[in-house]
């Protein structure tokens, strides 16, 4: 009875929740449960023959080296991009967060430019830039005498992941830089003043004054960057299609290929692809939770240190 009264009293609140919940229900929550459902079935997607196979798909995945390779590559991509992106962009942000630099906002604009452009489009542009035949990047390296033969950046398995990682960092560095700038600008001038009075500068200033203030931001930036690095489908699809010979096939390409792309007599396997998604999503979620717990712990420490 009390509950009903509460509902009645808050009816406008609930009403206001409705549009967002409907949208979220359709495209956030329903797909998760549906993916779990598909993952338990063998299904080509062509017809209505949905065969229940229980955990069969998961068992098959555990024994599928191509799945694990793709999984590993997603992790390599994550570990390859995130530190590089965060480190480089912090350096840039520190340099640009300087009122003396007249051209600061111009530089900022230039570095940010790739962020606003469609990633699939820039992926295609980069395939031309990196081409070993008359590609401008190889041309420049040859002219500078840094290499003697053109490098096949995207066609050799030993080069391809590094190449896509660099292009990815090029694409998104500007965004991380903006986040760092926002973080740096929250450090009030008075803090530097005070620090200077205490004769605290250089590494000590960073360690004891600036770092504690921007650390909570760093965790937010880390989280955002990591989410981004798992959504690399458009870049890799437009640059390499996952090739050569699986060498750049990350998780999302694996899922797309098994679920939709067909050729040479393979049948789309939506159930199997969904199971791969569930397994990958599950592991990522677990990692997130671990990270969140770690960040909460370190945040507590930082707060403790500053108060």
């Amino acid at each position: 009875m009390r509950l009903l009264q509460t509902f009645h009293k808050l009816r406008y609140h609930y009403l206001m929740l409705l549009p967002g919940l409907v949208l979220g229900g359709m495209f956030v929550f329903y797909p998760i449960f549906a993916a779990l459902f598909y993952a338990l079935h063998d299904w080509s997607g062509f017809n209505s023959d949905l065969v229940f196979v229980g955990l069969g798909n998961f068992v098959a995945l555990f024994h599928d080296p191509i799945f694990w390779d793709a999984f590993k590559r997603s992790m390599i991509f994550l570990l390859g991009t995130v530190p590089l992106q965060m480190g480089l962009s912090l350096v840039l942000a520190v340099l640009l967060n300087n009122q003396l630099l007249k051209l600061s906002s111009f530089f900022r604009t230039m570095v940010f430019l790739p962020v606003v452009t469609p990633v699939a489009v820039m992926g295609i542009v980069w395939t031309f830039l990196l081409s070993p035949f008359n590609g401008p990047i190889n041309g420049i390296l040859l002219d500078l005498g840094m290499i003697s033969r053109p490098i096949d950046f995207l066609g050799k398995s030993e080069n391809v992941m590094g190449s896509v990682i660099l292009v990815y960092v090029w694409k998104w560095l500007g965004l991380t830089m903006i986040y760092w700038l926002a973080a740096l600008q929250t450090v009030p001038d008075e803090v530097y003043d005070a620090a200077r009075l205490d004769n605290c500068r250089g590494a000590r200033l960073i360690r004891h004054v600036v770092l504690p203030i921007i650390l909570p931001f760093a965790l937010a930036i880390l989280l955002i960057s990591a989410v981004g690095a798992l959504n690399v489908f458009p870049l890799i699809m437009s640059m390499t299609n996952g090739g050569p010979f699986f060498a750049s096939e990350v998780m999302e390409i694996f899922i797309y290929r098994t679920a939709f792309a067909t050729g040479d007599g393979s049948i789309p396997r939506l159930g199997y692809a969904a199971a791969a998604g569930v397994l990958f999503g599950g592991v990522v979620l677990a990692l997130t939770i671990v990270q969140a717990l770690a960040s909460r712990a370190s945040k507590g420490k930082v707060e403790g240190a500053t108060t």
Binding site: A35, L230, V284
Partner: peptide, 9 residues
Amino acid sequence: FIPQGFTII
């Protein structure tokens, strides 16, 4: 954290 590829189907 759930990637887009997970729910596309």
